[in-house]
């Protein structure tokens, strides 16, 4: 999936995460993480972000993650929404998302 412009999803409320994705042509995946639990869960959050991007077939992207102790499933949901918004796609391929 191609990122066309900046897109974000989520909130800064507790248990949520605000994720913003931007184009990053030919520079791969860059993750900027801001989290109160970075020391404990930073690696895990990055792993979830990378796995989700791989599933969505997004390769060159800058991801800003403002985490408020979100669960993995919340991170996946917010990143997916941000990516589809940034790709300008409103027809969701549910089979591939499973």
């Amino acid at each position: 999936m191609r990122i066309l412009h900046s897109g974000s999803a989520g909130t800064l409320e507790s248990s949520d995460v605000l994720i913003t994705v931007e184009r990053n042509p030919a520079k791969g995946v860059v993750i900027e993480l801001e989290s109160i639990s970075e020391a404990r869960f930073g690696n895990r959050i990055r792993e979830v972000i990378k796995e989700t991007l791989k599933k969505l077939q997004v390769e060159d992207v800058k991801v800003r993650v403002q985490d408020r102790s979100a669960l993995d499933c919340t991170i996946r949901a917010r990143l997916t929404a941000a990516v589809f918004r940034a790709a300008g796609i409103e027809k969701y391929p549910w089979e591939e998302l499973e």
Binding site: A9, G10, L71, D72, C73, T74, R76, A77, R78, T80, A81, F84, R85, E90
Partner: peptide
């Protein structure tokens, strides 16, 4: 609407 749908979808599949 899209974000809520993804959130409920992911959470229901996990929790």
């Amino acid at each position: 609407k899209d974000a809520a749908r993804f959130l409920v979808y992911q959470t229901l599949r996990t929790i």
